[in-house]
Amino acid sequence: MRTVSIFTVAALAAGILCGCGSSARRIDPSTQGVTTVRDVNTRDWNDVAARAVNSLVASGALVRQDGRKAIVMINEVKNRSGSRARTQILTNKLRQAMLASGKAVTTTAVGGRGPEDNATRQIRELENDDLFNQATVQKRGTVISPDLSLSGEIINQATRSGRTRENTFYFHVVLTDLKTGLAIWEDNFEITKQETVNIFGY
């Protein structure tokens, strides 16, 4: 009789535990997204990108004296933090904001890790291909070289005191004038996150 009761309670407990999941649904990452101390989360990217965009547009660094739109090359934002941060999330948001500013356009013909779009070079290799009407093949010497380069770095500083863990991510973003090599805009953004783990360490 007692064995039956124990089995019944165990089955009920297992049923309740299994029933604690939730089905997949879309969420608002800014209010419902997961926040972890070790990683840069979606809401962190959104926050840093918003701050960086505001700072960049407010600086006026994209404005050229000759009135022409600045051509910006997206270089690398190096991730030197211990997290698996995908820095392209930040650069993609920044390039979209630069385009929306109306003061700059980005080039995909060159990039920090080679061209972002190989097509610019590939289509010029069709100049000896008799399959194509040569009048429609893009000519060499027409691609515009960038004026500016966007690069950056992410580092972090992790601290632990007792059961409290803290991690600060430092984002450094720079816009370099490629003619002079001088940084015409740069800014730093910090995000600090803290958690106190339970006595079992999670």
Partner: peptide, 28 residues
């Protein structure tokens, strides 16, 4: 006009604290 600056951004206030929040238009 939608840009990356449209995201919800966190702000933490201590009691009585004054903060300045700035918004920059995406274009002119």
């Amino acid at each position: 006009v939608s840009t990356a600056a449209n995201a919800w951004q966190p702000l933490i206030f201590a009691p009585g604290e004054v903060k300045f929040i700035q918004g920059v238009a995406p274009n002119s």
